[in-house]
Design a binder for these strands. Sequence first.
DNA 1: CGCATTTGACCCGCGC
DNA 2: GCGCGGGTCAAATGCG
Length: 278
Amino acid sequence: MDDGERPTGSAGLLPLFARSSTAEGLEEKLRRVREENRRLAATLGAILADHPHLRALATSPASAIAATATARTRSSSAANAAREEANAAREQVAGVTVESRSKVRTVCARAEPSDSDANLSVKDGHQWRKYGQKVTRDNPYPRAYFRCAFAPSCPVKKKVQRDAEDTSMLVATYEGEHNHHAQSPVGESIPNESTGYGWARSLPCSVSVNSSGRTIALDLTNQGSGSSVQAALREVVTPEFGKLLVEEMVNSLKNDAEFMQALTTAVAEKIVQNIPDL
DNA sequence: CGCATTTGACCCGCGC
DNA sequence: GCGCGGGTCAAATGCG
């Protein structure tokens, strides 16, 4: 997508990370950063003020967004796994439900239209090697078993199965934790097509959105050249689409105090990194 | 030819 | 103890 294009919903979002080719003074940069911070804080404050009901939703494990995806999940083949994790800590980002216990996470993601039953894939920045497939009793669609292919010693396993009732949904269950960084040896790049799992290990927030728009991953540690929330959002299929995504993301995250704190911290760190002399 | 995927067989845990 | 079902193994197969 053309860098010049920008989803309307993200207009003005974090322009501070835009690369400056000029040798404009660090002071000026700092001023812009501070101004941007003020704007962001004001915007978030206004949003929170306008939607106090979302605070209650966000603090409830059965929050609205989680309910949409989770309900589908639990009513189907993934119900057993989901029930087993009834006491698990829950994390969520718009459109994606992650239920986690210490080492088990269930992730719902919209399947790519091109995904066949034999080609289930939930991209998450890791390389996986399929080692088995099984048709389970309560789901006509086969369950695929994957191991992390990046490191032979990596204990992480992943199960992916199409939802029996909503076949456009994939349910991925992760077991264990990667003992290496989320990176593939041959660079399985996931520019705008990944599902969230990395946030479990890193602070949110670069934004990766799959083409269906139901899956968003945030990873602030993923700040390659030109990479930023703004840049990532530019890769969203259409400006309208991006706007919707932004709204959904904001709605689901803005009342999460932990997320906001993490976001603030991460943004501050990035500012410091971008201004070495600061 | 090497590597990833497929797929049938086998193992193991759990419920009856 | 037995049967069932989920999970894993490993040989066969396909593909680049």
